[in-house]
Computed example of a mutant assay.
Amino acid sequence: MRTRILPKMLNSEVEEYLQHNDIIIVPVGTVEMHGGFPLDSETVISEAYALRMAEACDGLVLTGLPYFYAGATASGRGTVQVSVRQGIDYLSAIAHSLLRQGFKRQIYISFHGPAHMTCSPMVRDFFDETGVPILYMDLSQQLGKLAKDLFTSMDCFHAITVGAYQIMGRLEDIPLTTAYAEPMQQSCAPFNDLFGLAYQSAAIGYCFAKQSDHMPTTAIPDAAARQRLADAGQSILEKAVADMDMPHVVEQMRKLEDYNNEVEKTHPWMPSAYNKKEN
């Protein structure tokens, strides 16, 4: 296959793919202040994961979705903030379009912590509307589960970021800098007791006071240091994807659809069953 990234494909190539498979992975990103890394860091991490995941399960990747709810980084002048509600509606429209095109097994992924507030409601509403189970995978959670032996410190997170840029052919977009490498306490740390009362950024509204709040990043003084980080991070990322067992995930999605269809036969009042009947 010439490429697995859908926007880079010819329409005829997509049609050929859909003759034998129906998997698309959709990385949901952000453009937000990110210490000494580019604003689209968490978009690129998600896209790099998506590409390796698609390669593992014969899927395609829909890139180009960087503008969603950023959260506490809205105080950054470079951050593009979209409301949770707007993000849900936009992503839902994309999901419906992909289903009409023939992509029945849709997997939404993100390395951005607050992305669950956009993605999880969308996938549940989509099932009620269509009867088709689509999936959201929280990559930060998956990394914690699957790569504990590799993810030993925040330096590993920084390495993954640089490795993702390398996978996407953008390594030189990572600047050489030491300006953001000093470890420091977040200005909002006195309120961590409130922030911990719900999942990640979903507890209460706040914004960071300083660019270094999100986040101090490792020193990258020269190109050799950047390359070492990239190689180490790519290895961690690819190990995590291998441990995900994507062929199993997509096969389970197919089996779950069969299970749901059986449930609907005996529970015709379910929203998904009702909407199928109406359509």
Score class of each variant (00 low, 15 high):
Arg2Ser: 03
Pro7His: 07
Met9Ser: 03
Asn11Pro: 06
Val14Arg: 04
Glu15Asp: 09
Glu15Leu: 13
His20Gln: 08
Asn21His: 10
Val26Asp: 01
Pro27Ser: 09
Gly29Trp: 06
Met33Cys: 11
Met33Ala: 13
Gly35Cys: 11
Phe37Met: 13
Asp40Trp: 04
Asp40Asn: 04
Val44His: 01
Ala50Asn: 04
Leu51Cys: 08
Arg52Leu: 12
Asp58Ile: 05
Asp58Tyr: 07
Asp58Thr: 10
Gly59Asn: 11
Tyr67Cys: 12
Ala70Val: 01
Gly71Ser: 04
Gly71Phe: 02
Ala72Phe: 08
Ala74Thr: 11
Ala74Tyr: 09
Ser75Pro: 10
Arg77Lys: 14
Gly78Leu: 09
Thr79Cys: 14
Thr79Leu: 12
Val80Pro: 09
Ser83Cys: 13
Asp89Phe: 12
Asp89Arg: 12
Ala93Lys: 11
Ala93Asn: 10
Ile94Cys: 06
Ala95Lys: 00
Leu99Phe: 00
Gly102Val: 01
Phe103Lys: 03
Lys104Trp: 00
Lys104Arg: 04
Tyr108Pro: 01
Pro114Asp: 03
His116Glu: 02
Asp125Thr: 07
Asp125Glu: 11
Phe126Glu: 00
Phe127Asp: 03
Glu129Tyr: 01
Glu129Ser: 03
Gly131Tyr: 01
Gly131Arg: 04
Val132Ser: 04
Pro133Cys: 02
Gln142Ile: 10
Leu143Asn: 06
Leu146Ile: 05
Asp149Cys: 00
Asp155Gln: 03
His158Cys: 12
Ile160Pro: 01
Ile167Asp: 05
Met168Ile: 02
Gly169Val: 03
Arg170Ile: 01
Leu171Phe: 09
Glu172His: 09
Asp173Ala: 00
Ile174Gln: 07
Pro175Ile: 12
Leu176Ile: 05
Tyr180Arg: 07
Ala181Ser: 12
Ala181Asp: 09
Met184Val: 14
Gln185Ala: 14
Gln186Met: 09
Ser187His: 14
Cys188Leu: 10
Cys188Asn: 06
Cys188Lys: 05
Ala189Leu: 09
Pro190Phe: 07
Phe191Pro: 07
Asn192Thr: 07
Asp193Met: 09
Phe195His: 13
Phe195Tyr: 12
Phe195Lys: 09
Gly196Leu: 03
Leu197Pro: 10
Gln200Val: 15
Ser201Arg: 07
Ala203Trp: 13
Cys207Tyr: 05
Cys207Ala: 06
Phe208Met: 04
Phe208Val: 11
Ala209Phe: 06
Ala209Gln: 03
Ser212Leu: 11
Asp213Leu: 00
His214Ile: 02
Met215Cys: 14
Thr218Asn: 10
Ala219Cys: 03
Ile220Gly: 07
Ile220Leu: 08
Pro221Thr: 05
Pro221Gly: 04
Ala224His: 05
Ala225Pro: 03
Arg228Gly: 15
Asp231Phe: 11
Ala232Ser: 12
Gly233Asn: 03
Gln234Tyr: 08
Gln234Lys: 06
Ser235Ile: 10
Ile236Leu: 08
Lys239Asp: 13
Asp243Ser: 12
Pro247His: 08
Gln252Tyr: 10
Met253Pro: 10
Leu256Glu: 14
Leu256Asn: 15
Tyr259Phe: 15
Asn261Ile: 06
Val263Asp: 11
Glu264Ile: 15
Thr266Pro: 01
His267Asn: 07
Pro268Asp: 02
Tyr274Asn: 08
Asn275Pro: 05
Asn279Glu: 12
Asn279Trp: 07
